[in-house]
Design a protein around this nucleic acid. Structure first.
Ligand SMILES: NC(=O)c1ccc[n+]([C@@H]2O[C@H](COP(=O)([O-])OP(=O)(O)OC[C@H]3O[C@@H](n4cnc5c(N)ncnc54)[C@H](O)[C@@H]3O)[C@@H](O)[C@H]2O)c1
Ligand SMILES: NC(=O)c1ccc[n+]([C@@H]2O[C@H](COP(=O)([O-])OP(=O)(O)OC[C@H]3O[C@@H](n4cnc5c(N)ncnc54)[C@H](O)[C@@H]3O)[C@@H](O)[C@H]2O)c1
Lengths: 256, 256
DNA sequence: AGGCGCTTGTGAAGACGTGCACAAATCGCG
DNA sequence: CGCGATTTGTGCACGTCTTCACAAGCGCCT
């Protein structure tokens, strides 16, 4: 029951007026598939099976097939997926056919690393502006971009449409920066500061918190330790803990 | 309905020999609660209601209560939770009562930022070693730590027990580094390189990929754009008078 | 002492995500 | 031209997560 559409011009051609309503979990995996596909393409593969791609992306193959089916995919039974076509499809769905402009606010310790990161450019984004509140940082040039004062945000937004704002300021300043970003029309924010941002409806915020990741790992470390410390209770279920332990978010080993 | 335990000695004293088997989703939120609780404690609050804490952590209050109930919490009906006690509880469960040693491998662009990050120390961790493969980086001193060669990893692990390994190398080197970490007994890895790591069972891997976060935001940006392009509501972002609830009604647009 | 208002802890229901297992579709080959 | 090998797409059952709604418990006030 899926519509047939032409691969060649997914964006503008006949239709695809509305994006398929993908499950959030699927959306979160598509970038992973995309990266794996690019690797495969670089390695010269023209097609790939769900089994092969799922292994490269570290997920279950049925899950991958279901994910791809959501976007009305173009697999060929008995053959697999056309790598180049699938890349085009996923990039279209993710909105990567246009190179989106990113404004980075807070050019400190972390901000410098982000500004110099080439993974931005190679994955569909372009740092359009570097902003900071510290006068001594304003004017500094990084990677061909000059750091501007954060109060120039409206001017920056007027020059070019900012798709995403990245916050790399201390936590205390993050909410104010978020407000400023929202005020100039930014509706997507990536926040590195360890705090909760409150934003109006319709604005998406994603958060990256290093300490949280470490603490989650610490929990599992703690639990592993407390398990191995247990005396060998001649009982039953306690010992193996086969599948139940595997955290959904973490990878597990597979034989490649 | 749970047993009463004395506030003074959580977990340590009588029992809690095995950690409660927490849902993974709960584990992922505990660090957020912990951060909010520290903020509240700094602000002088002695108790907090589930409503207040959930607001500070940005979650639903029922969810928070259920999360806390999983670890046999110590709320008082009609009053709320004792902030200091809850901090102690969560830190115990997360295994933060000991300051865990972190080895950071790859002291490049990103690695420098991480090495200089004080959020490590303030949230229960201690950078125990900086490692890199580039001879020209070995010997450099950052924040009082000297960068050592990655081949010294066994020696480093022998000096002190490494709880967590952080990989901040290029993707091409990440698998080899992971293997080296596993070889010296590390069972928890935080990976910043954009690639899938394969590790033996029992080793936890968490991944942080900036580009994936941006691409997820890009998807929502794309979808928002394709929605606002259709209906009559040409509204600009700032008119803060939406019709009430979010109403993710993506339906119907296909008709025309 | 007793009642009242507030807050926790949890049962239940539903939404969501996952993975198995298999029918349908396609290709290559004899 | 048909057959078998292969792989997709998906129905289904199961588990996990979320959220509502409310009884039970607690402290305070009268
Ligand atoms: N450094 C890391 O590795 C790391 C890791 C994870 C999270 N973080 C978080 O990222 C954020 C930045 O960390 P950092 O180490 O780069 O801190 P930093 O102090 O080195 O840099 C912060 C920068 O933000 C600027 N700033 C402050 N207020 C501002 C405002 N209102 N508008 C614009 N710019 C403003 C400062 O001038 C400074 O340049 C912090 O919230 C930190 O917790 C950092
Ligand atoms: N810079 C960022 O903001 C950023 C953001 C997200 C993800 N990442 C990822 O983090 C990783 C590091 O990024 P970067 O910008 O710091 O790169 P970088 O090239 O600046 O640093 C990489 C470092 O790793 C070292 N290294 C290489 N091979 C090694 C090995 N086998 N053992 C030990 N060390 C080794 C190199 O000597 C270098 O110092 C990359 O995978 C990148 O994709 C970076």
């Amino acid at each position: 029951m899926s519509q047939h559409r032409h691969p060649g011009a997914p964006g503008r051609a006949g239709a695809v007026p509305v994006l398929p309503d993908l499950p959030e979990a699927t959306v979160a995996r598509l970038p992973e598939y995309l990266r794996a596909l690019h690797n495969l393409a670089d390695a010269g593969h023209e097609t790939v099976s769900s089994e092969g791609l799922s292994a490269a992306a570290g997920v279950n193959s049925a899950k991958l097939r279901k994910d791809l089916s959501h976007l009305g995919s173009y697999g060929t039974r008995g053959v697999g997926y056309d790598v180049a076509l699938l890349i085009e499809q996923i990039e279209y769905v993710l909105g990567l056919t246009q190179r989106r402009a990113v404004a980075l606010v807070g050019v400190g310790n972390l901000g410098h690393a982000l500004a110099g990161y080439d993974g931005f450019a190679s994955r569909g984004f372009r740092i359009a502006a570097l902003l900071d509140a510290d006068p001594s940082r304003v004017g500094e040039e990084i990677n061909g971009l000059v750091v501007r004062h954060v109060d120039e945000l409206p001017a920056v937004a007027a020059e070019e449409s900012i798709a995403i704002g990245v916050i790399a300021t201390p936590a205390g300043a993050a909410q104010r920066v978020a407000d400023q970003l929202v005020a100039v029309g930014v509706t997507s924010i990536l926040n590195f500061a360890p705090c909760v941002l409150s934003v109006p409806e319709g604005v998406d915020v994603r958060k990256v918190d290093l300490a949280i990741e470490l603490q989650i790992l610490s929990f599992h470390e703690h639990r592993k330790a407390s398990l191995t410390a247990l005396p060998a209770t001649g009982g039953s279920a306690l010992t193996a803990l086969p599948g139940g332990l595997a955290a959904t978010d973490t990878q597990e080993a597979i034989g490649t």
